[in-house]
Nucleic acid binder design. Structure first.
Lengths: 334, 334
DNA sequence: GTGAAAGCGCTAACAG
DNA sequence: CTGTTAGCGCTTTCAC
């Protein structure tokens, strides 16, 4: 069943059927009804590939993420998909992992599939070296590239980011109000990961606390491996480092910190304060509840999609949207 | 830049270019190299829409889920995407929510987009009423439909499921070894949700424990709302129901149970035992660690994709793959 | 308001 | 081994 069959049965030309299909006004009501009836009867739907070939678009957006099972990315994908679909766009999902080479491949693939735009979810897509971001810059020469949570500057690349520096600074200063021995724990050397560290360092400076590398520690493990985080803290203590507060670059790390507290019979927040980042479901999975930074993910994703849609319609849009995180106080801090 | 441009520059016909592109053997090495060089030089990539139109496929699979931000679904999507991509297929993601109407719409849409197969992630897609599964049966008349975690019987519909009855029965019997006052907590009336309840009931029977509705309780709230789960348990206690063990249909509910224990200074597992389902990252987010049923999600997803790929190649495959869950003992049980 | 016809870029059957 | 050509099904311009 194709447009010819419909035109035959309706006794009109394929051009007319096409017009009806596309809501073109220049069709008489009578003809329109006749065509619609036939379409209804036959259950005809236009061939998407043919349409794509003619119009050079199939209304799809490529969504890339490192690992869609990470809670943050999973949420983002959900919000993005919902917003795009509500506007008639499909999502092709690509989980790239962490290797640059795979990211390039996926990007290439999406371009080949002729998506109308690309959304990069998560800050791991943007590197320090300019040369390693070439794949993004190149892609942006063809179609708009939206980046959630990473900051870079190139034509046709749009960044929707949290002001991680400020947000983390605020959280850090909260812990440093009357304590100097705060530990910073992170698990990604990504673009936003670096901004967060900067925020911690800023907090140190502003609070008159010395910055030492032994208090800025990297967790090199699988994000779900909470026990390993606790172990890392054990190692740090064994090195002789003492701390009364831990600032974490995400909530999972904070869960590890709490686990460490349990294992050592430390009272939270009396003996140890903990702050997470992301305000995920994990904040309620512990007792007391986890103080965390709400990064307003849903709003960011909405804005991202809105912006993209406008761009696709040819509008000029801001290259950077910056949101400020909000420290949500719960029981793991005083 | 299209196939004609390439053929011109290489001094061959478009048929030859097409052959080179598709790895057809009947091209001389010399010609092949010449063509490949031109392709390389021009950075030519074939137009996916044109190819799709001719072949009537763009090698995409529709992946439907209710909410990709639920940890279980997020994981499944990740595994499925990885496996499909490794075999040259793209995923179009559709998050449908819980309403049947939206599920139908999404299904329709994917069919219109001419995907090669459809994967339904999560058991909420299959209903009790046969008439409400018609959208699946109809879709399966056109393309294979794979269902993760729900059981139904129709031509061209393939189910990859956990033996929830047996798995839950085993977990229940573990708790009922020497206690009768076990509570069953669930949060979905879905296909697999019902099998799980059946498992609990079986455990009661086999353990000689009476089945009462007041011990089989539904949590009607957002899956991440751990405090609300604890509140529900409070309500149940206030009704006069007592329990020394809680069997939960997923790990998030179990976190709520643990929260309830904290709030009431109940020792786990001495005063209250808890078992979750899914063996998610949450099992390590609490102290002691959560005993849970490992449903081997990754393996199931691999098998699902494998099966689908074989079906697409015309092979006859089993309509149902059943995996048995495994009870992983941790600190919340004795 | 409607129809004829020219693409869109590729694959594959057929002929040589 | 290589080239010619007929689709694949739709949109859109140009006549009428």
């Amino acid at each position: 069943m194709n447009i010819y069959d419909v035109s035959d049965r309706a006794g009109v030309s394929i051009a007319t059927v096409s017009r009806v299909l596309n809501g073109n006004h220049k069709v008489s009501d009578k003809t329109r009804e006749k065509v619609l009836r036939v379409i209804e009867e036959c259950g005809y739907t236009p061939n998407a590939f043919a349409r794509g070939l003619g119009l050079n678009t199939m209304n799809t957006i490529g969504v890339m993420c490192a690992d869609s099972s990470y809670p943050y990315q999973a949420k983002a994908i959900y919000y993005i998909e919902q917003n795009l679909r509500a506007n008639g766009y499909d999502c092709i999902l690509c989980c790239t992992g962490d290797e640059l080479e795979r990211k390039k491949e996926c990007m290439e693939l999406l371009l080949t599939k002729k998506v109308d735009g690309i959304i990069l979810v998560g800050s791991s897509f943007v590197y320090d070296k300019k040369s390693e971001n070439k794949y993004i810059v190149d892609a942006a020469k063809q179609i708009p590239v939206m980046i959630l949570n990473a900051d870079m500057d190139a034509p046709n690349v749009y960044c929707i980011i949290t002001d991680d520096v400020k947000s983390m600074e605020e959280a850090g200063m909260f812990l440093m109000k009357n304590k100097e021995d705060i530990l910073y724990l992170y698990n990604a050397h990504s673009n936003s990961g670096k901004r967060k560290i900067q925020g911690f360092k800023n907090a140190c400076k502003k609070s008159g606390v010395g910055i030492t590398e032994e208090r800025i520690r990297y967790f090199d493990g699988y994000h779900e491996n909470i026990p390993a985080v606790a172990q890392l803290l054990e190692t740090i203590v064994n090195e002789g480092v003492r701390f009364s507060g831990i600032l974490c670059s995400d909530d999972a790390l904070a869960m590890g910190a709490l686990r460490f507290a349990w294992e050592h019979n430390l009272k939270v927040p009396e003996d140890l304060q903990v702050i997470g980042y992301g305000d995920s479901m994990l904040v309620n999975c512990c007792n007391p509840g986890l103080t965390s930074v709400d990064t307003k993910e849903e709003v960011m994703c909405q804005q991202l999609v809105d912006t993209l849609l406008q761009i696709l319609q040819g509008k000029e849009m801001p290259q950077k949207l910056v949101f400020k995180g909000k420290l949500v106080l719960r029981g793991t801090t005083r």
